[in-house]
Amino acid sequence: MATLTINGQVHEVNAPDQMPLLWAIRDVVQLTGTKFGCGMAQCGACTVHMDGEAVRSCVTPISAAQGREVTTIEAIGEDAVGRRVQQAWLDLGVAQCGYCQGGQIMSATALLKREAHPSDEQIVDAMNGHLCRCGTYTRIQQAIHHAADTEGEDA
């Protein structure tokens, strides 16, 4: 049994401690925006925030999420930076199939929160752990710059 705070809501999750946060979010809490892609932190589709930091929920046991604030893609728009990133994704038409994009947006938001105007190298460092089989990387890079440039504007 674990007590998880996800998007500001407290959930009592009746599951073994070692269950990855991903499956607690998806199967138990039934928030489905966080995606399964590999199960071993290779693709980033499962990325969520834990206390504002981007983590791979597929390799994070629920025991490690106890007492932390977990944020998923469903709630990232409530954050000003998150909303700007979402808008940048729309403005630049980043998504193709869209499956990996929730995770990409979570990492991009975490990056912009710690580095308001990242360089190309910083963007690659932050995003290289994400796979997009549709191949949207150049637009993701542009969208992160675009989101940085729209800082202070109403999203």
């Binding site: 925006g33 893609i73 994704w89 998504a95």
Partner: peptide, 12 residues
């Protein structure tokens, strides 16, 4: 589907 995708609402 753009809005749904960026907000985690799109259904796969």
């Amino acid at each position: 589907d753009g809005e749904d995708i960026v907000s985690g609402q799109a259904v796969y």
